[in-house]
Structure formats: C-alpha cells, structure tokens
C-alpha cells in the first residue's frame, strides 16, 4: 500500500531546495516561511490521510471529486498533494480564509495546479498559504475509470 505522507525528511529538504530555486522572487517570504511553487493536486486531506474511504489512489481525482466537494464544504482541511507525495495543508487561498463560505476552494477541488505561496513547517506538518494559483489544468486524474466513484453513493441513484 502506498504510504500517505505528510512529509518525509529527505523529500522535505529536496522539495524545499527545489522550491527555493524556482521561486520567482516577487513574493517576499513571511517570517518563518519560505516562498515556494508547488505543483500538485488539490485534495481532501481527511479521506487521503485517514484511509476512511479506501486507498490513497482512490480518494483523489475524478473518482473522489464529489466527496472532496462535500469535505471542503464541511470544513475539512483542503490540501495540495505535490508530485513527490508531500501533502501541504492549505491555510489560505488568494487572500481568502479556507472556511469562508465562498466558491474559491470549491472551484479548485481535485484540480491539478501550480500554486505559489508561503510554506511553513511545524512538528512534521507542511502548511501552505496560497498567494496565487499560477496555472490550473483542471482535473487531470481521471481515476473514476479505475475506481468508479468513491464513495459509491457519491452519485445518487435514480428514483
């Protein structure tokens, strides 16, 4: 079973170095933070980390999109799963708090993006304040073709 990661030591250092190097520089680092660009998928962190709905490959992408919307609307932290597997907990998006009752996070859910922002690490958990989404390819992980929808009741049955 693929390991769900909040971080790994080597990955964090390498990702941090890579991010330093690619940082465009216009965004100044806040105290205690580093400016980074993260390429990854917006995910529902609870289902991904807890395994409550199944394995990590099934609780992302199009298969899990509806549940990811439910969890975001329910106030469960949204994250960015980077290409190296590191999960960044999103604390703000484009100046909006994550639980503001707006559509910003909802519209990004399950999308493959490149986000630029401030990266904090504390007690092994990675946090990200997204200043800007500099590219968005939409949902590229079409894993419903492999897993169907997760959970199975995501699409209501016809009456």
């Amino acid at each position: 079973m693929k390991m769900r990661r909040l971080r790994t030591p080597a990955a964090t250092v390498l990702a941090s170095l890579a991010c330093f190097i690619v940082a465009a520089g216009r965004l100044s680092a806040a105290p205690g933070a580093q400016v980074v660009e993260i390429k990854g998928e917006i995910i529902d962190t609870w289902c991904y980390l807890s395994g409550v709905m199944g394995g990590p490959d099934a609780v992302v992408g199009s298969a899990h999109h509806t549940c990811a919307l439910w969890c975001a609307a329910g106030g469960i932290p949204v994250g960015v799963k980077a290409e190296d597997g590191t999960v960044y907990m999103v604390l703000k998006v484009k100046g909006e708090d994550p639980l503001a009752q707006t559509d910003t996070i909802m519209e990004l859910q399950s999308d493959s993006i490149v986000a630029k922002g401030q990266h904090y690490v504390r007690d092994g958990v990675n946090y990200l304040v997204v200043a800007d989404v500099i590219s968005n390819e939409g949902i590229t992980n079409r894993n419903h073709e492999d897993f169907g929808v997760v959970p199975g009741f995501a699409i209501p049955e016809k009456k």
């Binding site: 390991m3 769900r4 990661r5 909040l6 971080r7 790994t8 030591p9 962190t45 609870w46 980390l49 932290p77 504390r122 007690d123 092994g124 958990v125």
Partner: peptide, 10 residues
C-alpha cells in the same frame, strides 16, 4: 496518519 516520526498527526 501513518508517518511514525510526525510529532503532530492530524
């Protein structure tokens, strides 16, 4: 969370 070294799991 599965990482044993993480001091603060969710």
């Amino acid at each position: 969370g599965e990482d044993p070294g993480v001091k603060a799991k969710v």
